[in-house]
């Protein structure tokens, strides 16, 4: 067995991040749409929350003047110039896999390529609510198929480890952003326990496929503090921040010479550990998530400096 090229490791890492990003964005967009449908007219939070989640305000403002449903969804689903859009993520995943075909199961390229074709042909027409659900659902299904293929066919060597690390960092990042969107949508409201806030949390759990897991671990009552605790600190739920960090550490140890990466993981872990979800105010939560995001950026930079620099 030859060791993996640094350039290939980097591309696999990014491929995994983009695939995970596309899936998360599709789930989130879908969940948010469902949520808006449930909330009585007049009390709905705006569509701008979705833009804030990916920190796309500037990009958005450069191209659109109004945070209308159509504009926001066009930006998130179909806009190839928006680095946060589903279409961009899938396009980028394809470009990365195009240059690493030799390290993955044969079918992998074909699945990603076909998905890219599907998205580029259908994204524009899927912005309207009527087609949106089916489109996002299909995108997610195809992405899950790719994930399944990787899980069942990629040998547990460097290729797999870098795919894992990319996916876990992205997932960690997205979970914290999802919590942030909830805070963004509820911050400044008179009553943080209004029914629509509960609806929002439920839908966000749905967007992370976390409803059943939450119920088993915490119980049927959906309440802000509990959800935050679950999404950040569940030991068992594969999308929680703790779970992701723990597994990044496991994969890092398998690759070897990743001491600096482990050190950043450890500091991130401590940060999340210090959080007191029951007592936290929404404003402080937002601030906390900013700090966690900064850690994740540092984590990415350390991974790149350790293994990707040539």
């Amino acid at each position: 067995m030859n060791s993996m090229l640094s350039s290939v490791a980097e591309r696999l890492y990014w491929m995994a991040r983009y695939l995970e990003r596309a899936e998360n964005m599709a789930c989130l967009t879908n969940a948010y749409t469902q949520f808006i449908l449930d909330v009585p007219k007049g009390t709905q939070p705006g569509w701008d929350s979705l833009i804030r989640i990916i920190e796309g305000e500037e990009e958005f403002a450069a191209r659109y003047s109004e945070y209308s449903e159509r504009n926001v969804l066009k930006f998130l689903i179909a806009d190839l110039d928006n680095p946060g859009s589903i279409r961009f993520a899938i396009h980028s995943a394809r470009e990365n896999i195009r240059t690493t075909r030799d390290t993955l199961p044969e079918q992998c390229w074909e699945l990603v390529n076909a998905l890219n074709l599907y998205v580029s042909e259908n994204a524009e027409a899927s912005i309207a609510r009527r087609h949106r659900f089916q489109f996002l659902d299909r995108v997610v299904a195809r992405l899950q198929r790719i994930t399944g293929l990787i899980a069942s066919s990629v040998p547990r060597d460097h290729a797999y480890q870098f795919i894992r690390i990319g996916r876990l960092i992205e997932r960690c990042d997205m979970t914290s952003r999802v919590v942030d969107v909830a805070t963004a949508a509820t911050l400044g409201r008179q009553n943080p326990n209004a029914p629509e806030v509960t609806w929002l949390w439920t839908n966000l759990l749905k967007s992370l496929s976390a409803v059943a897991a939450y119920r088993r671990e915490t119980g049927p009552v959906v309440e802000g503090g509990e959800v935050i605790d679950f999404l950040f600190r569940s030991e068992a739920f594969p999308r929680s921040v703790f779970f992701c960090l723990d597994n990044i550490a496991i994969e890092t140890e398998k690759i070897g010479n990743g001491e600096r990466v482990l050190e950043v993981v450890d500091r991130s872990h401590k940060l999340v550990h210090s959080l007191e979800p029951e007592a936290i105010t929404l404003a402080r939560l937002h601030e906390f998530i900013d700090r966690l995001q900064a850690r994740l950026i540092e984590l990415h930079e350390t991974v790149a400096a350790t293994w990707f620099i040539r």
């Binding site: 350039s7 075909r101 030799d102």
Partner: peptide, 17 residues
């Protein structure tokens, strides 16, 4: 190039690799 590298299980490299 990518096709043959994959078919041979060989690394596909560019000059700076």
């Amino acid at each position: 190039h990518a096709f043959l590298a994959q078919g041979m299980g060989a690394a596909l490299v560019e000059g700076n690799d």
